[in-house]
Design a protein around this nucleic acid. Structure first.
Lengths: 333, 333
DNA sequence: ATGAAAGCGCTAACAG
DNA sequence: CTGTTAGCGCTTTCAT
């Protein structure tokens, strides 16, 4: 193993100069700096993170906790986190809690002890639990994704606006009775999406008011949508908005089986605009956000607070966009 | 921050006893052990990984390099790696090289310097490059997934058998002309899949021999299959085997657009049996492997070699299975 | 601008 | 079975 001592010997300086030349090149004469850096490169020197971390108190590592890496949503967020962290010089510990809310707090705690900061994506606990969990983090070393709690920095998508957009789209196509297939109860996004739909549906009795049928809570997977589809048609809805793309695919699947045309008889809208939206047939109209950007924003927030401990807890709200594809169409009489 | 000293003081023993009681409880009297552990819990002691790593030379961290986390294939492998590593007490650094072969070597090198071992999933470099990259790893601290090189431990799927199975399935359905939509040239799996198909196709002129049409190299995404579909029908194939599920979906998509029934006129088979296979319409017949198990096996291999440096480099070959769904059917005259 | 020296928290000899 | 001590590789005062 090549250490600072080896580099120091090779370049004829002391180990402290090596350390400086490599970490903060401005604090060393240009000539010395070059000599040291050349020696380091030649010897294949790689700083020992454990040692530098022990001394400096920084691990140069971030943690990200996701409910399920196989969910394309979180895969994208994790990808964004990893990429941006790398740009800032941080490595990333990824922890998949397998949708088990009870593991969340424990994993965050462990990660907090071995990283500089943690990103918790779509926390599964209640607001109370999440707040407690995060307040144990000294100086705001935790950032939430998809959950907004006062005093805790977070990155969320503008789901309210996105959902409203979706509803307006459906209204414009003539739909007056729209069903919503809901997601997990602890999902903050679900609450926001509901809210957006409700607001956009308009006052009861208004000329262009839309009847919103809440189908309840379903598993956020294909199966959930498959189970909900019949309820939607039974309720007389001509359009279905689903908690996410997978659920929407489940709805499409069941409708197809029953010979109900999409969008001929029923229109379907998903959320998240993950790549599966384009795989569906018909391809899915979906409310999307740039998920990698969400992950990247969370890293930026964290790094900012790590660098400047006095930074206030800010809430970044990323824009959402309605991507119209073939799964939505006009109402037939 | 709570350190061993605090725990030592609280439990009335020396710091080394604390260290022992916490890491190897057998080397300490039962009563002492309990006292120390209680104190540690009460104080909320979390060992400092940097410090223990610095002293012991172990980082308790593994690295995994994947070409693309958003690819469901690698998401599953990464998930398997993370879960199993956790069971062994290791954290996992995930690095996504964004399908950029030129970043591979550098990332592996960096990772090797800050972890105990590295798993390289589906290396994108040539055999030569991969061998060089891995031989820099002292004492076999690298394991390959989806690439078999002598002397380097690896986990692969039995793609030859899987591909053969797929071809036999098609033959049994009456297909005598089958097209293969190939994947990346540096893909070892692609080579094996080709080989399996070739072998199972049988000797030319045999009664039940199958004509294998090689369509060439395509991008391993939906678009690749979409582009290849017309070539397959143009070549008179009644069945198409695709490099992976996404490619197969692309084939299905294009065929549907052209009004060619699947499986009525053309059957389609994918590889990897990722969750997207079930999303397709019709759902895709696919040759699958338990991808989480692949990741887990890679971790086991690595941990074994980390624990016993004399362990020989073994090659784990995971079984593949043909999952028959609605995208394959009998040939119509 | 550079060097000497201390010490981060822990584990591993070595004593006892 | 337990305590003492040294030191992992690095960063960071404090001198010079």
């Amino acid at each position: 193993m090549v250490t600072v001592r080896d580099v120091a010997r090779a370049s004829g300086v002391s180990i402290s100069t090596v350390s400086r030349a490599l970490s903060d090149p401005t604090r060393v004469a240009a000539a010395t700096r070059d000599r040291v850096q050349a020696a380091a490169r030649e010897l294949g020197y790689e700083p020992n993170r454990a040692a530098s971390g022990l001394r400096s108190g920084r691990t140069a590592t971030l943690g990200v906790v996701v409910p399920d890496l196989e969910n394309p949503y979180f895969a994208s967020v994790a990808k964004g986190v990893q990429a941006r962290a790398r740009e800032h010089g941080y490595g990333v510990f990824v922890v998949d809690i397998e949708e088990d809310a009870s593991r969340e707090a424990e994993e965050v705690r462990t990660l907090l002890a071995q990283t500089d900061g943690v990103i918790v994506a779509s926390p599964r606990g209640t607001d109370r639990e999440v707040r407690e969990l995060v307040e144990r983090a000294p100086r705001g070393r935790a950032v939430l994704v998809n959950r907004r709690i006062d005093g805790v920095p977070s990155v969320t998508a503008d789901d309210v606006a996105g959902a409203a957009r979706a509803l307006e789209h459906l209204r414009a196509l003539g739909h007056r009775r729209v069903a919503y297939v809901g997601g997990p109860e602890t999902s903050w996004s679900d609450r926001m999406r509901r809210e957006g739909l409700r607001r956009a549906a308009g006052a009861e009795g208004a000329v262009d008011a839309v009847d919103l049928v809440d189908l309840g809570v379903f598993r956020p997977h294909v199966q959930g949508g498959y189970s909900a589809a019949d309820l939607a048609t039974g309720a007389g809805a001509t359009a279905v908005v689903a908690y996410n793309d997978l659920v929407a695919l489940g709805v499409e699947q069941r409708l197809r089986e029953r010979g109900i045309a999409v969008p001929g008889q029923v229109s379907v809208v998903g959320f998240d605009d993950t790549f599966v939206a384009t795989l569906a047939s018909p391809p899915l109209t979906s409310v999307g956000t740039d998920l990698r950007a969400v992950g990247a924003a969370a890293v930026d927030l964290l790094v900012e607070r790590l660098t400047d401990p006095d930074a206030v807890a800010s809430h970044v709200v990323r824009p959402t966009e309605l991507i119209v594809r073939a799964s939505t169409g006009t109402v037939v009489a």
